[in-house]
Amino acid sequence: MYILFLIISIISLIAIFVFGILTIVQFVNKNKKKGIRSLLFTGGAIFVNIVAFIAFIVAIPGPENNSEEMIQTSADIKNEQVETEETPEEIAAREAKEAEEQALAEQKAKEEAEAQAKAEEQAKKQAESVPREYKSALTKAELYAQTMYMSKAGIYDQLTSEYGENFPPEAAQYAIDNIVVDWNENALKKAQTYAEMMSMSDAAIYDQLISEYGEKFTAEEAQYAIDNLE
């Protein structure tokens, strides 16, 4: 605001100077009427200048106001620092908690690593302890499942049959227990073979899939095959 009063004061000074010169010129030219009018304008400009100057002085913020603002700002900053700064007890408690959490995390990671190493060691020992014939039965079972799409029961019978692989029942059971196969998909692939190569009906394919003289799939596996046969 005081800038506005300063500008008005400067403009009024210019007006005083201009009207003052005009007043002198009018009186020198003996034009009293115009001279008096210029003199009145000059007086008005002087009045405006005085008022604007006084307002300018009043509007300028005093040093005490600046001091109060600075004191208030400093107090606010100090209060914020007090609120954000931790006490020694708070720092100690926070550090203790962080140390405890880190120790727990390290302990958990160590236990997980030990458990994994133990599981791997047990798996390795178990694999080493499996008889060669058991491993061979599993390999043969995987071959039948992946290339001939046989059922679980069909593979077991083939592994133990004296006209087939002639493995002992224990080896064949180990193979069946450890083979990873989607038996539903095997039933579907076998059904597709019957449908494409022998043009069999759905009912005939179903019977062939579940027959003990056929593929020996379960009823659920056979139904899955029929439901998804294209």
Rank of each mutant, 00 (worst) to 15 (best):
M1Y: 15
M1N: 14
Y2C: 06
L6Q: 13
S9Y: 08
I11A: 11
I14D: 08
I14C: 13
I16A: 10
I16W: 11
V18S: 05
G20C: 03
T23D: 04
V25Q: 13
K32W: 05
K33S: 14
K33R: 15
K34F: 09
L39I: 07
L39K: 15
T42F: 13
G44V: 08
I46E: 10
F47E: 05
I54F: 05
A55N: 15
A55S: 15
A59V: 14
P61V: 11
P61T: 02
P61C: 06
P63H: 10
N66F: 11
E68V: 00
E68M: 03
E69C: 00
E69M: 02
A75T: 09
K78R: 13
Q81A: 10
Q81F: 13
E86S: 12
T87L: 11
P88E: 11
E89N: 07
E90V: 05
E90G: 04
R94L: 06
A99Q: 15
E100Y: 11
E100R: 14
L104W: 12
L104Q: 14
Q107V: 02
Q107S: 08
K108N: 10
K118R: 06
E120A: 01
E121D: 03
S129A: 07
P131V: 03
P131Q: 07
R132S: 11
E133Q: 09
A137L: 13
T139N: 14
T139I: 15
E142K: 14
Y144V: 00
I155V: 12
E165Q: 12
E165L: 07
F167N: 03
P169G: 04
E170K: 13
E170D: 09
A171G: 08
I176E: 07
D177L: 02
I179Q: 07
A187D: 03
T193H: 14
M198F: 13
Y206E: 05
D207Y: 08
I210A: 03
E212G: 01
K216F: 00
K216I: 01
A222Q: 03
A225K: 07
I226D: 05
